[in-house]
Amino acid sequence: MHPVTDELVAAATAGEPGALRSIYEALAPRVLGYLRSHGSTDPEGLTQEVFLVLFRRLPELVGGAAGLRTFTFSLAHARVVDELRARQRQPVTVPYLPETDERSSDSAETEAVRALGAEQALALVGSLSDGQREVVLLRVVAGLSLEETALALGRSVGAVKQLQRRGLLALRSLLHDPGVTPRAARR
């Protein structure tokens, strides 16, 4: 590794490939260490960017070897600051794991039952057909899955889905238009 001298900088400014390589070999490890120490997530990539800009702007350089070192590290500093700012603007992404999610919200059915009050809810559910009432109670009140409800009632999952859909539609109709009879709401 060659020390960075004023003569080496002059040769690099003139475009001599060997001088450019010597400057890179002398300064790249230090630039890489500087970027790593400042928390860069891609210090190798930023090091390459620093030298691409440096070599393109060498003809503008003043101050010889000291000016080259100063300019190189000012480029490295600017790149790492840009990276850190960009990282701060990006939201932190965290994978969603349903088993660890503590948030919960009640279903529409549960909220409706809570809003109505127990007596009114029982009266409305009582107006459903036997099959709809059983399915709605097992699904909403007992919290059983479709499969568990089907097993408990000795019906197919498809039949349970249909009874639940019709029962909830009937309840919705009864809530929005109390004058509708349960028979009309079942259709």
Rank of each mutant, 00 (worst) to 15 (best):
H2D: 15
T5Q: 04
T5F: 03
D6I: 09
E7K: 09
L8C: 04
A11N: 08
A11Q: 13
A12C: 05
A14F: 01
G15I: 14
P17W: 13
G18V: 10
G18F: 06
G18C: 01
A19P: 05
L20S: 10
I23G: 06
Y24P: 02
L27V: 14
A28W: 12
P29S: 11
L32F: 15
G39V: 14
S40Q: 00
D42F: 08
G45A: 10
T47D: 05
Q48Y: 10
E49G: 07
V50A: 01
V50Q: 02
V50S: 04
L52D: 11
V53C: 09
L61P: 07
L61Q: 05
G63W: 02
G67S: 03
L68F: 02
F71W: 06
F71H: 09
T72R: 00
R79K: 14
R79D: 07
V81C: 07
D82N: 12
R87H: 07
R87F: 05
R87G: 10
R87L: 13
Q88H: 12
P91R: 14
T93D: 07
T93V: 15
V94R: 08
P95K: 08
L97H: 14
L97A: 13
P98C: 06
E99V: 08
E99N: 03
T100V: 14
T100Y: 04
D101C: 07
R103F: 14
S105G: 12
S107M: 04
A108T: 14
A112F: 03
R114I: 07
A123I: 12
G126T: 01
L128F: 09
S129I: 00
Q132Y: 06
R133N: 03
R133H: 05
L137P: 03
V141P: 05
G143N: 04
S145P: 13
L146P: 01
L146A: 07
T149D: 00
T149R: 00
G154M: 08
G154W: 11
G154F: 11
R155P: 00
V157F: 04
G158M: 11
A159C: 03
L171C: 05
L174W: 05
V180R: 07
P182A: 08
A185G: 10
R186M: 14
R187F: 11
